[in-house]
Computed example of a mutant assay.
Amino acid sequence: MLLNVLDHPADMTFNLTESPWIRAGRQYSVRDLWTHTDNGTAVRNFTAHHVPGHGVVALLLKDAGDEPRGTQPPCARPEWCMDQNGTRIDNIGFGSGEDM
């Protein structure tokens, strides 16, 4: 759920990578539970546009598979970006287009 605490409408962005319930490296289909609409696919972030002042948006996120190939940088927050062997990815140089 996204809660707009402002007195005016606002765009609200949710960083999926900061949620302990969202798996890294995945994309998610987004459904608004109150308007019963599908709102596309979120990769790392989702923005709800024009949330009314003091309004709430209830979203259902469903796993929609792996992130698209070539999504760069490999992590939304480089300081949290680790390879499977525990090496920080920002220390290996990821600009070459190679798969991790």
Results as ranks from 00 to 15, higher is better:
Met100Val: 04
Glu79Phe: 06
Ser96Asn: 14
Cys81Phe: 04
Asp63Glu: 15
Ser29Glu: 15
Ile92Val: 14
Ile92Gln: 15
Thr87Leu: 06
Leu6Asn: 14
Ile89Phe: 02
Gln27Lys: 15
Asn45Thr: 14
Phe46Met: 06
His50Lys: 13
Asp38Ser: 13
Thr17Trp: 12
Ala64Cys: 07
Trp34His: 07
Ala48Pro: 12
Asn15Leu: 12
His54Thr: 09
Pro20Met: 04
Phe94Asp: 13
Asp66Trp: 01
Leu59Asp: 06
Pro52Trp: 04
Trp21Val: 02
Gly95Ala: 11
Asp99His: 08
Met82Ala: 06
Ser96Asp: 15
Phe94Leu: 00
Pro68Trp: 12
Arg69Ile: 05
Thr17Ser: 14
Cys81Lys: 06
Ser96Trp: 10
Glu67Pro: 10
Cys81Met: 09
Pro68Val: 02
Val30Phe: 02
Val56Lys: 06
His8Pro: 00
Lys62Tyr: 00
Cys75Asn: 08
Ser29Trp: 03
Val30Asn: 05
Pro78Asn: 08
Pro68Tyr: 10
Thr87Tyr: 00
Asp83Ser: 10
Thr87Phe: 03
Asp11His: 14
Val56Pro: 04
Pro9Thr: 07
Gln72Met: 09
Asp38Arg: 04
Arg23Asn: 05
Pro52Thr: 00
Asn15Glu: 15
Glu18Arg: 14
Cys81Trp: 07
Ala10Asn: 15
His50Ala: 12
His36Phe: 01
His54Asn: 15
Gln72His: 12
Met12Tyr: 05
Val56Ser: 01
Asp66Thr: 11
Lys62Met: 10
Trp21Gly: 02
Thr87Asn: 07
Cys81Asn: 08
Thr71Lys: 11
Gly70Thr: 08
Arg44Tyr: 10
Lys62Ile: 02
Asp7Phe: 01
Asp11Gln: 06
Asp99Ala: 06
Met82Thr: 09
Gly97Arg: 12
Val56Glu: 03
Glu67Cys: 04
Glu79Lys: 14
His49Ser: 04
Glu67Met: 07
Ala64Ile: 01
Pro73Asp: 13
Glu18His: 04
Thr13Gln: 14
Val57His: 05
Thr87Trp: 01
Val51Asn: 07
Arg77Ile: 01
Thr35Leu: 03
Thr17Ile: 05
Arg31Phe: 11
Asp99Leu: 07
Ala48His: 06
Pro74Thr: 00
Asp90Ile: 00
Ala58Gln: 13
Gln72Lys: 12
Pro9Cys: 05
Val5Asn: 09
Met100Lys: 04
Glu79Tyr: 10
Ser19Phe: 08
Ser96Leu: 03
Arg69Asp: 12
Met1Asn: 12
Tyr28Ala: 05
Asp99Glu: 08
Asp11Glu: 02
Gln27Arg: 15
Pro20Ser: 11
Ala10Glu: 13
Val43Glu: 13
Arg23Ile: 01
Thr71Ser: 11
Arg23Trp: 05
Phe46Tyr: 15
Val57Ser: 04
Leu33Lys: 13
Ala58Tyr: 08
His50Leu: 05
Tyr28Asp: 08
Ala64Phe: 00
